[in-house]
Computed example of a mutant assay.
Amino acid sequence: MDHTCGAAAERLAEGLGYSCHGTEPVVDLRDPFGLENGTMPVLELLVIGGAVFALVHAWRRWRRDGDPANIALWFASVVYLAVIEPPLYFPEWFGLEQHVGFIFSHNVFTVQFMFDRLPLYIVAFYPALSQLAYELVRVLGVFARRGPLAGAVAVAFACQVFYEIFDHLGPQLKWWAWNTGNETINQPTLASVPMNSMLLFASVSFGAMTYLVVRLTGGTDGPRTLTGPRIGWRAAVAGAATPLAMIIASAPSGAFRGEDLLGVQRAVLGAELAVVWAAGLWLLADAWRAARAEPSPVASPGFARIYPALYLGVHVVLWLVALPAYFAAADGVTEQGTPIGSLWYVVPCAAAAAALIAAAVRASGARRTAEPVRS
Results as ranks from 00 to 15, higher is better:
residue 211 Y to P: 00
residue 362 R to A: 13
residue 328 A to Y: 09
residue 336 Q to D: 14
residue 95 G to V: 06
residue 121 Y to M: 09
residue 360 A to M: 08
residue 105 S to I: 12
residue 205 S to W: 03
residue 123 V to E: 05
residue 146 R to C: 08
residue 267 A to F: 14
residue 168 H to A: 02
residue 55 L to K: 07
residue 317 V to S: 08
residue 146 R to W: 12
residue 104 F to P: 02
residue 87 P to H: 07
residue 120 L to G: 04
residue 43 L to I: 13
residue 51 A to Q: 03
residue 245 A to C: 15
residue 51 A to D: 02
residue 227 T to K: 05
residue 159 C to T: 14
residue 101 G to T: 03
residue 253 S to E: 03
residue 318 L to V: 05
residue 365 G to D: 07
residue 4 T to F: 13
residue 7 A to C: 11
residue 220 T to N: 15
residue 104 F to I: 06
residue 273 L to D: 12
residue 369 T to Y: 13
residue 175 W to C: 06
residue 306 I to Q: 13
residue 314 V to Q: 04
residue 240 A to I: 04
residue 108 V to A: 10
residue 131 Q to W: 13
residue 52 V to H: 03
residue 62 W to A: 10
residue 216 L to K: 02
residue 230 R to F: 01
residue 360 A to F: 01
residue 180 T to K: 00
residue 336 Q to I: 12
residue 284 L to W: 06
residue 365 G to I: 05
residue 41 P to E: 08
residue 291 A to V: 06
residue 16 L to C: 09
residue 269 L to K: 05
residue 38 G to Q: 13
residue 152 A to P: 00
residue 324 P to I: 09
residue 300 S to C: 15
residue 245 A to F: 11
residue 176 W to A: 10
residue 206 F to A: 11
residue 305 R to D: 05
residue 105 S to D: 12
residue 356 L to M: 11
residue 332 G to P: 01
residue 287 A to K: 02
residue 105 S to A: 15
residue 211 Y to H: 11
residue 284 L to N: 05
residue 243 P to K: 00
residue 265 Q to W: 01
